[in-house]
Structures are given as C-alpha cells and as structure tokens.
Deep mutational scan, measured.
Amino acid sequence: TVKFKYKGEEKQVDISKIKKVWRVGKMISFTYDEGGGKTGRGAVSEKDAPKELLQ
C-alpha cells in the first residue's frame, strides 16, 4: 500500500493498482486504477516511497 496526499487529502492505494511510475526530481509520481475506468494520480517523496514502487 502506498500512502500519499493529493490536493490536501490523505489517500492510499494498493501497489497492485499502480499502472505507471516515474521520477520527478526527489518525488516519485504515479498513476493508478481508481476503478470505474478512472485513472488517479499521486506522488510521494523518494524517502517515503515503498521499495516496490522504486523497482
């Protein structure tokens, strides 16, 4: 599970739902399947990112 803040809201998403991951400076950005055909997005700092996300 990845915990992150998006627009001031605390969120979390299961690693299995993450589609795409990329690095922006010291942040790790990602998109994930929100269900219902929607794609969500989020970002975590490199130090807070789970190891599975960095692979």
Rank of each mutant, 00 (worst) to 15 (best):
T1V: 15
T1L: 12
V2I: 13
V2Q: 01
K3M: 09
F4D: 01
F4W: 14
K5I: 15
K5Q: 12
Y6C: 06
Y6V: 14
G8W: 03
G8L: 05
G8K: 04
E9P: 02
E9Y: 11
E9F: 10
E10M: 13
K11T: 06
K11D: 02
V13H: 01
V13T: 06
D14P: 14
D14K: 08
I15C: 03
I15Q: 03
I15D: 01
I15H: 03
K17N: 10
K17S: 12
K17I: 06
I18S: 00
K19M: 13
V21R: 03
V21G: 02
V21M: 06
V21L: 06
V21A: 10
W22I: 06
W22N: 03
V24P: 02
V24N: 11
V24E: 14
V24T: 15
G25K: 05
G25L: 03
K26I: 12
M27S: 07
S29Y: 15
S29R: 15
F30G: 00
Y32G: 00
D33C: 04
D33Q: 06
D33A: 06
D33K: 04
E34P: 03
E34A: 15
E34Y: 07
E34W: 06
G35S: 05
G35I: 05
G36C: 06
G37L: 04
G37F: 04
K38S: 08
K38G: 07
T39I: 15
T39G: 04
T39E: 11
T39M: 15
T39Y: 11
G40N: 06
G40E: 06
R41Q: 10
G42I: 03
G42C: 02
A43Q: 15
A43L: 14
A43I: 14
A43T: 15
V44S: 02
V44C: 04
V44M: 11
V44T: 05
S45G: 07
S45T: 12
E46L: 14
E46Q: 10
E46F: 13
K47N: 12
K47M: 15
D48Y: 13
D48F: 11
D48I: 10
A49W: 09
A49C: 12
A49E: 01
A49N: 01
P50Q: 03
P50F: 02
P50H: 04
P50G: 04
K51E: 13
K51F: 14
K51Y: 14
E52F: 14
E52H: 13
L53S: 01
L53M: 07
L53F: 06
L54I: 14
Q55C: 10
Q55F: 12
Q55W: 11
Q55E: 14
